[in-house]
Design a protein around this nucleic acid. Structure first.
Lengths: 188, 188
DNA sequence: CTGTCATGCCAACACTTGTTGGCAAAACCG
DNA sequence: CGGTTTTGCCAACAAGTGTTGGCATGACAG
């Protein structure tokens, strides 16, 4: 009966949703199993039964797909702006990324997950987009620094001027930066 | 006897140094008073006597001066590169900034401190450097997003390609970005 | 209906946390 | 020297943590 719909699937989903919310707003250590369980209106022990322990719960809650567009489908000189817009949109529509970012600051497993996400999703796109595949990692790292920095200031630190910008304004400013990191002639 | 050198000043300093180290490597919640006290080779209760409570200890440990150069002393078109280099150097020579960044991800007081730092130190420089003072906050916010993002990837998440770069390489890449955020014609 | 398994809650565990009060020794001042 | 203040440690507290095992209730197959 592995593929059947169990009655507990709703509970599992409620736990996962509550976990994402707590991890996103409180980070890994301050998000307690008890608080998550209370949000999902079940007993804390259920969380343990369905997810084993807190670490595994986080791993399940931090599962994430950036859904990056295919580099081939976008004109080379619009890639920066398109990526910037996509990132911001993705960030605003799914709190998983904020959860991951907040947790990654203090939790090594979350940081490792962030590095995996970088290597598995952003790096391939950079490799396809940049002139010399040999320095794709560095270029992807720079793109990450700008996009994660923007998310940090906007969703975590909440710097007023960064929060005040619309997503389109922010993308318009940051787009050329991403573009340069991806496709410019090598600096230095 | 307020201005005299007390015998306990060495202990106070040891506590503060240990606190900065722990906050920098563990973040606010995982850095325990007990661990800090152990590092400083004293009893946990001493931390309380000298700093009141954990919050105040963090406030004392997170005191920080960016020591930004005067915008007037630097040619306008070299400001971006100079700032990038300065930031990276400052970051590497004092772990207080890493402590502040790690803690700010999950601790509201630390985030507030980060915003103060932004408003009191980076904003004035941007106001002096950018063409129209009216959009200085936005420009300063963008600068912060890039510099904090770089620090996040390099010192907290430890993305391999970002760690592998030398400080000068990183500054060479990021410099033009900062420059554009500060002095370019308004985007969008 | 009967037996079986899934679902949920309760109570408790071992442990860690920040924090407090009291007590000994050392340092200092007259 | 005597008296006071400073510096430090010890033991303990109350609260909160992740985690566990047992017991009820419901659903469901035969």
């Amino acid at each position: 009966m592995t593929s059947a719909v169990r009655r507990s699937d709703a509970t599992r989903a409620a736990i996962l949703a509550a976990a994402r919310e707590r991890f996103a707003s409180d980070g890994y250590e301050r998000a307690t199993i008890r608080a998550i369980a209370a949000d999902a209106r079940i007993d804390p022990s259920m969380v343990m039964r369905y997810y084993g322990n807190k670490e595994k719960l986080f791993a399940a809650a931090a599962e994430f797909d950036l859904q990056l567009p295919d580099a081939a489908g976008i004109p080379r000189d619009e890639l920066g702006a398109a990526l910037a817009r996509h990132f911001l949109h993705r960030w605003e529509s799914d709190e998983t990324l904020t959860a991951l970012l907040r947790a990654a600051a203090t939790n090594e497993a979350a940081a490792e997950r962030m590095r995996e996400l970088f290597g598995a999703q952003l790096l391939p796109l950079a490799t396809a987009a940049c002139p010399d595949p040999a320095d794709a990692p560095r270029r992807a790292g720079l793109v990450a620094s700008q996009m994660l920095g923007l998310a940090l200031c906007r969703f975590v630190l909440r710097l007023p001027p960064v929060v005040a910008m619309t997503a389109d304004e922010a993308a318009a400013w940051v787009g050329p930066t991403i573009q340069r990191y991806l496709t410019s002639a090598t600096s230095s």
